[in-house]
Design a protein around this nucleic acid. Structure first.
Lengths: 194, 194
DNA sequence: CCAGGTCCCGACAAGCCTGTCATTTTTAAT
DNA sequence: ATTAAAAATGACAGGCTTGTCGGGACCTGG
């Protein structure tokens, strides 16, 4: 597989992503992707075997990209509150671009495959998110920025709120005000009272 | 349509509910429901026109039933904390029976119909939930049971957490411990510090 | 026992989706 | 310009879904 092939693969994945954002997972057919990419049926099968595989690869691509973004932010340094704020702001940006969100597709996908072991992936991702936030909160407590009796509970709480926001952003579009209120609420819960 | 018909309708809805719980929305075909109900294809079409209509009616049924349950709880009286606790316990029960949960189906359904006006239904339901919790919190503040600077924000927060819990209960099955921790976390955030 | 209504069955046509493959077009190297 | 490999096409068979409809079963009262 040459350089060009890799480029076309990426093109297909990027285009398919839009389709999944628009239609979820179960409603998407190979035809939808073929048409979006303006290629032929057979051409698509040259690169991918199923919508299943395509969504998987889209998610993988997505995960790698956001990992990179977050790593950068941590390297930039700053206080725990800064980093958490930055993190939440990043989430907000994603939430408000709710039209570009894959949340529903992801849940549909993992639900459809719940009997397989792919399942643990979602769980592991969630746990990883909790751990990152927990560490951030603990760092904030150590530096006196935050007050929190149960960092792990708080971290999980934040993750659940974000999940709730994401899925609702895609179904009934939530407003920026709602997102702001929630993120503010989260931060206020952590900030040391004077 | 006689008494018997009504009974059979209900039987179909109850049975179909299990199918939606199991498979979500988009994956469910009339055949699935026919087989689950052990009736014939033609027989089913006598009562319902599409999986779409069936899910809608299942949701309606569901809404009416839970409304009833909650009304009862409020009439029983008790402190705000009692009622909120009761409410959360009820949610917990539902969460742990995650195999009987319709969350994924609901999101799939409303996402698939996002261009129609049915959409507002989800939003309205969410807002109604927020309002109920908000009132409960305010009552708790008035009676000195709760402390909360932003009842509306807190109420929305609780709803988002519950949504996050529900959807994750269905995708990767969360443990009772996780649910307990979250509900406890919610309550602790509200209870007056001594 | 019969007539009329109600309820139910399952085979069928039409349509969509998938995955394949013989064929054509493009590319790149001689 | 020639040619062989690579890339791309779209028609096709097979499978699954939908909605329909002619016919059968089952009451129920006369």
């Amino acid at each position: 597989m040459g350089e060009k092939s890799a480029q076309k693969r990426k093109y297909i994945l990027d285009t398919a992503r839009k389709v999944f954002v628009e239609k979820g997972y179960k409603s998407v057919t190979m035809k939808d992707i073929v048409e979006a990419c303006e290629i032929s049926r057979g051409g698509l099968y040259l690169y991918f075997d199923s919508t299943d595989q395509i969504l998987m690869e889209v998610l993988q691509m997505e995960a790698e990209e956001t990992d990179d973004v977050f790593s950068e932010k941590i390297e930039e340094g700053g206080t725990a509150a800064d980093i958490l704020t930055l993190f939440l702001k990043e989430q907000k940006k994603e939430l408000l671009r709710n039209k570009e969100n894959l949340t529903v597709a992801v849940y549909e996908y993992f639900f459809a495959h719940k009997s397989t072991d792919k399942n643990n992936m979602l769980r592991r991702q969630f746990d990883a998110g909790v751990k990152v936030i927990e560490k951030l909160i603990e760092a904030g407590i150590a530096s006196g920025e935050f007050y929190c009796e149960d960092p792990k509970g708080a971290a999980a709480n934040i993750m659940f709120v974000l999940e709730g926001l994401k899925i609702n952003a895609q179904t009934f579009g939530i407003t920026e005000k709602m997102v702001d209120e929630q993120l503010l609420y989260i931060m206020q819960g952590l900030i040391t009272e004077i």
